[in-house]
Simulated scan of single mutants.
Amino acid sequence: MSPEQYTRFIKAETARLGFDYCGIARAVQLDEDARRLEQWLNKGMHGSMRYMENHFDLRIDPGKLVPGARSVITLLLNYYPATEQQPGAPMVSKYAYGKDYHKIIKNKLKELLSRIHDEIGEVQGRGFVDSAPVLERSWAQRSGLGWIGKNGNLIHKGAGSFFFIATLIVDLPLLYDDPVAADFCGSCTRCLDACPTGALPAPRVVDGSRCISYYTIELKEQLIPEQMQEKFGDWMFGCDICQDVCPWNRFSKATGEAALEPLPEILNFSTRDWEALTEEKFSEIFRHSPLKRAGYAGIRRNLRLRQI
């Protein structure tokens, strides 16, 4: 098989596995991204997320994750829900409506790599989703899947930004897609203007230490700075404001991935239901949910913030 045949096979398999888009870039060291990441870390915009400081060299060089890496395959999986929560309820970010995406996507990546081994032969590769030291948005842009919007999210011109991004690094030569060089945000600043905590101080600069998602998910301390406590609105877990106001998300369509279908409790629970929830019931209902990351204590804390 030639690189062209390898590429056709891989893209057909990703579609069969339910990924919405697939792009491929040449595996190179990301020097410019390294400089931006270093500046971001030096400014403390990662807050208490110290894990962001780890494995810096792995984040910028795919060859350190897969020796002899030739290609970086980037995959998008749509998570936009067909039904959303009712206004006024404790709000959950749309990515967390269904089951934990990490397991769903990792299983798909394992199957994809297995099919590559079956059809192409001995190929070294590793799959990553979100929690690994990979600059997935940079690879997505390099592989032609979109551009980095002013809100810091990858935006696909025909489908918006409500996507999970997965990466498969392989030592296989493939045909490479053209990167998206243009910025289609234009003069729009809706996301910057809408952020209630000032977490978007400039286009494509996300101050993670000021983001509602950071406070409601990543921050494990029970005390949240007083100057932030009145800015969360109805958000209990995560935040979608900068995506909800983005004009490109008018093209978002409901996901076809059954495992990402919203849990009935997330759609239907009222504030009273959430407040009455015991730790035992929380563990039972949300055992496969991203809400586990905040934990029962974190959800209770976030509910109290809505009453301030």
Score class of each variant (00 low, 15 high):
262 P>N: 12
143 S>W: 02
84 E>H: 14
293 R>I: 15
118 D>Q: 12
7 T>G: 03
303 L>T: 14
228 M>V: 03
12 A>R: 11
232 F>Y: 01
228 M>K: 14
206 V>E: 07
288 H>A: 12
255 T>E: 01
202 A>C: 06
302 N>S: 04
26 R>Q: 14
37 L>V: 11
210 R>G: 04
210 R>I: 06
249 N>P: 11
160 G>R: 13
54 N>F: 12
16 R>T: 09
258 A>K: 13
261 E>K: 09
291 L>P: 08
151 N>H: 12
38 E>I: 11
285 I>S: 03
232 F>V: 15
96 A>Q: 04
255 T>D: 02
43 K>F: 08
149 G>Q: 13
59 R>V: 14
33 D>F: 09
159 A>L: 13
271 T>G: 10
79 Y>M: 01
137 R>G: 02
135 L>Q: 13
100 D>W: 05
261 E>A: 11
130 D>T: 15
46 H>F: 11
38 E>A: 12
104 I>N: 03
249 N>F: 09
48 S>R: 13
24 I>G: 03
187 S>G: 02
101 Y>W: 04
237 F>D: 11
165 I>G: 03
123 V>D: 01
51 Y>W: 11
304 R>M: 14
35 R>P: 00
281 K>W: 11
176 Y>D: 07
136 E>C: 08
173 P>I: 01
205 V>I: 15
84 E>P: 01
197 T>E: 01
307 Q>R: 15
107 N>Q: 14
159 A>Q: 13
79 Y>G: 00
32 E>P: 03
11 K>Q: 14
28 V>D: 08
93 S>T: 15
109 L>C: 05
111 E>I: 08
67 P>L: 02
283 S>V: 00
254 A>Y: 01
257 E>T: 15
158 G>F: 07
196 P>N: 08
271 T>C: 01
184 F>C: 05
73 I>H: 01
257 E>K: 11
18 G>T: 05
